[in-house]
Amino acid sequence: MSRSCLLLAVSLPLLLLALAACSPLTTLNALSPAGDTECVDGVAYGEGPRRKLDIYRPQGARSAAPVVVFFYGGNWVNGARGDYAFVGRALAARGIVTVIADYRLHPEVSYPDFLRDAAQAVAWARREAARYGGDPQRLFVMGHSAGAYNAAMLALDARWLKEQGMAPSELRGWIGLAGPYDFLPIENPTTKPVFHFPNTPRDSQPVHHVSRATPPALLIAARRDKLVAPERNTGQLAALLRAQQVPVRELYYDRVSHTTLVASVAAPLRWLAPTLDDVAAFVLTPGA
Rank of each mutant, 00 (worst) to 15 (best):
A64S: 14
G82S: 13
F71R: 00
D83F: 00
R57V: 02
R94T: 09
L115W: 03
P66F: 03
S110T: 14
V122F: 01
G79W: 00
R104A: 01
R57D: 03
A121W: 07
R62L: 14
L105M: 10
R50V: 06
Q59H: 13
N78S: 15
A65W: 08
P66V: 01
D117R: 04
F70T: 05
R62A: 15
R116L: 15
W124D: 11
G88E: 01
R104L: 03
D54E: 10
G82F: 06
A61W: 09
V68P: 01
A123N: 04
R116F: 07
G48A: 07
S110G: 13
N75A: 15
D83T: 05
W124M: 12
L91Y: 05
D102L: 09
V69H: 01
Y72D: 04
L91T: 07
A93Q: 11
V97N: 13
K52F: 00
R94C: 11
P107V: 02
Q120E: 15
I96R: 09
Q120H: 13
P58D: 07
G79L: 04
A92V: 11
V87A: 02
I55C: 08
T98W: 04
R89F: 06
V69A: 05
Q120N: 13
D117F: 09
A123I: 10
G82M: 07
A64G: 11
